[in-house]
Amino acid sequence: MEPVFQAHQLVKRYRDTLAVNGVDLMVHAGERVALLGPNGAGKTTTLMMLLGVISPDSGWVEVVGHRLPHGRSEALAHVGFSAGYMPLAERLRVREFLRTYGELYGLENPFERIEEELERFHIGHLSSTMCTELSSGQRTLIGIVKATLHRPRLIVLDEPTASLDPDVALRVRTGLRDVCRDEGSALLITSHNMLEIERLCERVVFLSGGRVIADDRPDAIAKRFGRDDLEGAFLHLAGGHGQMPLPQETDRPA
């Protein structure tokens, strides 16, 4: 399978903190990959380098064959991004917001696509609502519609379902699976909801201290570290045991 995204030996330091320390990452067409790790593991910094928003100190990023930073615009035409912490633009209706971003992604007449994508996530009725009047769940869904509007080769989502109720989270998962299946898009997602990742992703890349310490299927990672599920493996790895599996160790207290 052809890679849609490659990162090679990414390093990023902020003053005295080494945020990312030699990350290698590859995502293939149609793959659904989770980037996991405890707070401060370097997930968001890695994503920001992949999107060209932050430049790496060393290493390189290539998206659909375009090397950043020179091919940034060409590369990002194939990427859709949304994050749970990203607000929608103020003073715009949902339709206007999506039209703006559809055009920024090169769609000459995005209205038909906007209607299709809103229906995919069952939120067609929000089209005329002001972005500032949406609930947090609705904002998340609109953000994901924005990220998928141009049928990107790679969808990147940073904690998209944080603070969503189970119903909306289910709609997000179902919608994303449909997009990946129908459009052949790859998905790279970060989340702290391990159950969600197990249901959505076929591969997990685990970061700790700015390094990749595990890269495998969710069940294989759980098994490798002697845990029943991904959450157990997460607690184990986040506890600093990434380099040395300890199958008999009990979960860390909260």
């Binding site: 590369a75 990002l76 994050a83 607000p87 633009a89 103020e90 924005k146």
Partner: peptide, 14 residues
């Protein structure tokens, strides 16, 4: 002001 900068920076906009 509207915290829209990141939204713009992740598009192909030059």
């Amino acid at each position: 002001w509207s915290r829209n900068l990141l939204n713009l920076m992740v598009t192909p906009l030059k």
